[in-house]
Amino acid sequence: MAAAAAAGAGPEMVRGQVFDVGPRYTNLSYIGEGAYGMVCSAYDNVNKVRVAIKKISPFEHQTYCQRTLREIKILLRFRHENIIGINDIIRAPTIEQMKDVYIVQDLMETDLYKLLKTQHLSNDHICYFLYQILRGLKYIHSANVLHRDLKPSNLLLNTTCDLKICDFGLARVADPDHDHTGFLTEYVATRWYRAPEIMLNSKGYTKSIDIWSVGCILAEMLSNRPIFPGKHYLDQLNHILGILGSPSQEDLNCIINLKARNYLLSLPHKNKVPWNRLFPNADSKALDLLDKMLTFNPHKRIEVEQALAHPYLEQYYDPSDEPIAEAPFKFDMELDDLPKEKLKELIFEETARFQPGYRS
């Protein structure tokens, strides 16, 4: 834990890192770190609560700039109880001085990944967590956004079992017609939660990839272990087919990539493993919904509104309290091709509203 900075004593240090967030945020305490930044909790002297502050230093890398800009653009436009918001952003007053960006968010005690390492969940908890994931996802999908990296560590939890989806750095506007060349190379989302079509096709992607990830998360809540822990690309596919069985001819016809289709045709026939054999203690309604989410063919996979209306979630289902976005989200430009200098300018502009004396 960093010592509390005395008023006016300059930035606090946390594990050798400068955290320049005073005077409003003090009493910093280390939480963890990701690929390009550290997260601390801090005391907000204005709202009198502890908050989470993520320090991001992305400006050396085009990919990190892209992810940072995506996350900020999306989260500043989203407003939903099951999606983490941005409360404040701290950065230098000029673009030349801006080396880091500090993002202030609600402090959540833990995440689903940490929880599943230590606790076996009751059916009631599984049901409530799944409902909140789908409630947040309904809003995301209504904005025409794909999260693309749903996994237990991106689901934040607090002691009252509130759940918030975080990390929109890989999110995209849904565009089933656009052929994202190089899709697989830039697709760094965790393999275990990846839909089979991501490994088999490169053309376009749809909201059904997020539903697949939610199915993987439900299976993990039922058993405290990942359902498809593939060691590499082909191993991942083999794990999936080992449980779902061989795809039907109709399902194979959806695979545009001939090499991928021929690979699947070359494999020995596998039978589907019954879900109640894998999860003998699970609620039968939970397994019915799991089956509809972990469907090989993305066109037959359940959609988020149908999933919310499934009998497993009937005690929570309330369409009048499951809000959607006001308007579909649009990125003005494809960020993939922009140089990091341009992305830095866009991050600077996007964060201006939090600067003292800002006038829109």
Rank of each mutant, 00 (worst) to 15 (best):
I84H: 08
E341N: 05
H232T: 06
L130M: 15
G182H: 06
A42W: 00
Y205G: 08
I347D: 06
K231C: 08
E322P: 00
V104C: 09
A9K: 05
K330P: 10
A219W: 11
A327N: 01
Q97K: 15
G8D: 01
V101H: 03
R301K: 13
V273T: 01
M199V: 00
K285A: 10
A7C: 08
P176K: 06
E345R: 06
D291I: 03
I217N: 15
A309V: 07
A174N: 02
H61K: 11
E341I: 08
E109T: 02
D175L: 10
V145P: 03
G242A: 12
K114G: 12
E314P: 01
E303A: 11
L155W: 07
E322R: 04
A143E: 07
Y43C: 13
H239D: 11
Y193N: 15
I165T: 09
T206V: 11
I217Q: 06
L155R: 03
N87W: 03
P356A: 03
R225V: 07
R353V: 09
H299C: 00
N45E: 07
C216R: 10
R172I: 03
L69A: 10
H232V: 02
V273I: 09
D124F: 09
G136A: 05
K300A: 04
N257H: 11
G32T: 02
M199R: 00
L130I: 06
G182M: 04
S122V: 01
L258K: 05
I217M: 11
K117P: 02
T118V: 06
N253R: 09
M13W: 00
L265K: 04
I165N: 15
E314H: 01
G245T: 02
H147A: 05
K300H: 08
F129S: 00
E305P: 06
R301F: 07
L137P: 00
L222N: 04
L264N: 00
K54M: 13
I347W: 15
A4M: 10
L267W: 03
E305W: 01
Q236H: 13
F78T: 07
M38N: 15
Y102W: 03
C166Y: 11
S213F: 11
L150T: 03
V49F: 10
P319I: 03
H147D: 10
G182S: 09
P311R: 00
L313F: 09
P339M: 10
A174M: 13
P152R: 07
I53W: 02
A6G: 07
D179W: 01
Y25A: 00
E345G: 00
K272N: 14
Q17L: 14
S142T: 13
N158F: 08
L343W: 02
T351G: 09
I302Y: 08
L335K: 10
Y233N: 15
L76W: 01
S360W: 00
L308Y: 02
D337I: 08
L155I: 10
L234R: 09
A52K: 02
L308M: 13
E71H: 05
G230F: 07
L76N: 06
K48V: 10
L157D: 06
N82E: 06
T68D: 15
L107W: 04
R261L: 14
S248M: 08
I243N: 13
T351S: 15
N45P: 06
E334W: 03
L265Q: 14
G16Q: 10
P268N: 06
L107I: 03
P274C: 07
P328Q: 06
E60I: 08
I103T: 01
L313S: 03
D179Y: 15
I211M: 09
A189C: 11
I31S: 06
T160F: 01
A5T: 13
G169H: 07
S208N: 11
Q62F: 06
N262W: 04
A52H: 03
A143I: 02
Y317R: 00
G357L: 10
Q66V: 14
G230R: 08
L163F: 01
I90E: 04
E305G: 00
L278Y: 07
R359S: 15
R194W: 08
T295R: 05
V39Y: 07
L290S: 02
H239I: 09
V39M: 11
T185Y: 05
Y128C: 13
Y43G: 07
N271G: 04
A5L: 05
G22V: 15
I255M: 02
I83M: 00
T160P: 12
M199L: 15
L170H: 04
P229R: 03
I103Q: 15
Q355T: 10
F183N: 11
H232D: 07
A260G: 11
S213L: 01
Y30V: 02
L289E: 03
D235F: 09
